[in-house]
């Protein structure tokens, strides 16, 4: 029982991080019908920028978080700018383009920060909450709350604001959207900016639980991608539920099957996806004209 509950706590904590990363995947997909394969590496960049500001420039954690998030969003806008000639024209080339940017970001990080990584500590030293032997770290709770809050905000933004609706419309039919007066290029830039900012926030939040190195985004990215698919690609509640599900699945699989846990996670994931290809919340498939 103790192991079970503690595994739930651990699974939810990392699940919340996967959810945050999956939100970025979903937002960009929701706006551009594009899977941004550089997303994990954008997260890595955000984590590096944030941790460098804390470690080398001695900035307060909150300042570092905001500054690195803004900088990463700017990089996201830059990526979108370079990909723009391909937008709405050649989705395949664009997918390859995002893969290329992933490599560029990783190589760039190696040039700037070297292959060795850096570590940041949990920003506040609050005592862990101990409920009958189940230990819950306040920081883990904070990540869960952040994921829930950001997910809710994004959900409301996309469904309730004019900009959010316009961004969704752009993905569903960019020509019809532009005929309505929506500047699709701008929507894409905004999607990349917000998506990259989300990645940076996830990277900053995850950094104290991990080690910031050039490949830190890879395994997070893969799990978040799985989370987004499981939840229904493009769905905001799906990203949250999918993230938590993958986190729990991973923690229980590794707990039960030890060294084979990872295999079990992805086999279970593949099984679930083949049973329900649209994912949990996948309400519609977006078709391109």
């Amino acid at each position: 029982m103790e192991v079970f509950v503690q595994t739930v706590v651990g699974g939810l904590t990392f699940g919340a991080i996967y959810a945050l990363v999956a939100l970025g995947f979903s937002l960009i997909y929701r706006t551009m019908a594009l899977v941004n394969f550089a997303h994990g590496d954008v997260l890595m960049l955000g984590a590096y920028l944030g941790s460098t500001m804390i470690l080398s420039f001695r900035l307060p954690v909150a300042v570092a978080m905001v500054a690195s998030t803004l900088l990463t969003a700017a990089v996201g806008i830059g990526i979108e700018r370079i990909l723009r000639p391909l937008e709405n024209k050649d989705l395949d080339l664009m997918l390859i383009g995002t893969l290329g940017f992933g490599i560029v970001l990783q190589s760039g990080a190696i040039i700037v920060w070297g292959t060795a990584g850096q570590a940041v500590r949990i920003p506040f030293g609050a005592a862990p909450i101990d409920i009958a032997g189940i230990i819950v770290q306040p920081y883990d709770l904070m990540i869960l709350v952040a994921a829930a809050a950001i997910g809710t905000a994004l959900y409301l933004f996309l469904g309730r604001t004019k900009l959010g609706l316009a961004m969704q419309a752009s993905a569903m039919d960019f020509q019809a959207a532009s005929a309505m007066g929506i500047d699709v290029g701008r929507m894409n830039a905004i999607a990349f900016a917000i998506g990259s900012a989300l990645a940076a926030i996830a990277g900053n939040l995850a950094a104290p639980l991990l080690y910031v190195e050039p490949t830190v985004g890879v395994s997070l990215g893969i799990r978040a991608f799985a989370a987004a698919m499981l939840g229904g690609f493009g769905s905001i509640p799906g990203a949250i539920v999918g993230g938590l599900a993958i986190g729990l699945l991973d923690s229980f699989a590794t707990g039960m099957f030890q060294g084979y846990g990872e295999v079990v996670t992805f086999v279970t994931f593949a099984l679930l996806i083949s049973l329900r290809p649209t994912g949990i919340f996948g309400e519609h498939t977006i078709s391109r004209v």
Binding site: A166, M172, A176, A177, M180
Partner: peptide, 21 residues
């Protein structure tokens, strides 16, 4: 447009409102 090209994943009202984007 030809073939209607409505925003299938949005509600009827959201579609209409986007007409007044």
């Amino acid at each position: 447009p030809e073939g209607r090209r409505i925003f299938a994943g949005l509600t009827v009202e959201q579609n209409l409102l986007l007409g007044a984007y």
